[in-house]
């Protein structure tokens, strides 16, 4: 089905163009010579909820081992796009995705691809910290356990400890690993969720406004953590805070009304936006 739709997307693209001539659909792209190579690419992705189209023909390359930020006013489709990358939209009834998203050249929407395997490679951190009602240890051990990553108990303990260390949480919780994860503070819970995602050993981590439910101090800690993580992981972060995007990301993509308006190196986007709407958003005129 995907193949058919992809081949049609070129036709559709021209149709949308003529219909929507004023709001040009062409994404403005500023190339970044220093960018890491991209293993994750999106090409002509559109998303429909029932009859309603939420995302229009988005194409973008996500460079590896760096942070890419998706920004834009609420309802612009940035979260929808993020959830396409590990096919979380599959869990929503009536949601249909067309176009290609590829990881190492393999189409994620290929019928043969196992979504379970995909999500083990592309982890996700959500807007609201959502630790399972289990102990801290069990929260982190959950992924390795279901995927069978640990051969024995020591293996599992090692994975849990490393993940907690990477998430910068270990020192804070090492003497209460077996108390419930829901008992932690909001910022700690979110770091627990990050540790949980890393325990599976993903290559890509998707973060959906990970700091929106946190106070400024917890936010700062998470931001530092994201900065540390980018040496090993490809991170895509959705944020409604432009400052956050400017602080943590190397690449920024601006979404508006379901369309990808402009993308480029973060610095370029923030200092020298080429598209009027991007400029308006960054200066606070639309939001």
């Amino acid at each position: 089905m995907n193949q058919v739709l992809t081949s049609r997307s070129a036709l559709e693209m021209s149709a949308t163009h003529s219909k929507d001539a004023l709001a040009s659909h062409q994404t403005v792209r500023t190339p970044d010579p220093d960018a890491h190579p991209s293993r994750l690419r999106a090409d002509g992705v559109s998303v429909f909820y029932g009859d309603k189209q939420a995302l229009f023909d988005v194409s973008i390359d996500i460079p590896e081992k760096s942070v890419s930020a998706l920004i834009g006013p609420s309802g612009c489709g940035k979260s929808t796009f993020l959830r396409c990358i590990n096919r979380m939209n599959d869990t929503i009834e009536g949601c249909k995705v067309t176009g290609d998203i590829t990881l190492d050249g393999q189409n994620l929407y290929d019928g043969n691809l196992d979504v379970v395997e995909l999500r083990a490679r592309i982890g996700m951190v959500f807007q609201k910290p959502n630790p399972f009602p289990k102990s801290i240890f069990e929260n982190v051990a959950y992924g390795p356990k279901i995927h069978g990553l640990a051969r024995n108990k020591t293996d599992l303990e090692e994975i849990v400890v490393t993940s907690l260390q990477k998430a910068g949480l270990f020192e804070e919780v090492k003497d209460r690993l077996h108390s419930p994860g829901t008992g932690l503070s909001g910022g700690q819970q979110q770091r627990l969720c990050i540790a949980r995602a890393m325990a599976v050993g993903p290559e890509v981590i998707l973060m959906d406004e990970p700091c929106s439910a946190l106070d400024p101090i917890a936010t700062a800690i998470i931001e530092e953590l994201i900065d540390e993580l980018r040496s090993n992981y490809t991170i895509v972060i959705v944020t409604h805070s432009m400052q956050q995007a400017a602080r943590v990301s190397q690449k920024t993509a601006f979404f508006h009304l379901g369309k990808l308006i402009e993308e480029g190196p973060t610095e370029a986007i923030f200092t020298n936006p080429r598209e009027k709407r991007t400029q308006d958003y960054i200066t606070g005129r639309i939001g």
Binding site: V116, A120, R121, H147, G148, L149, V200, G201, E203
Partner: peptide, 17 residues
Amino acid sequence: AGEDRHALVRKGLARRH
């Protein structure tokens, strides 16, 4: 390590499905 884990994930898939 990631590739190692990846292989482990693959191994369990059939049983899990």
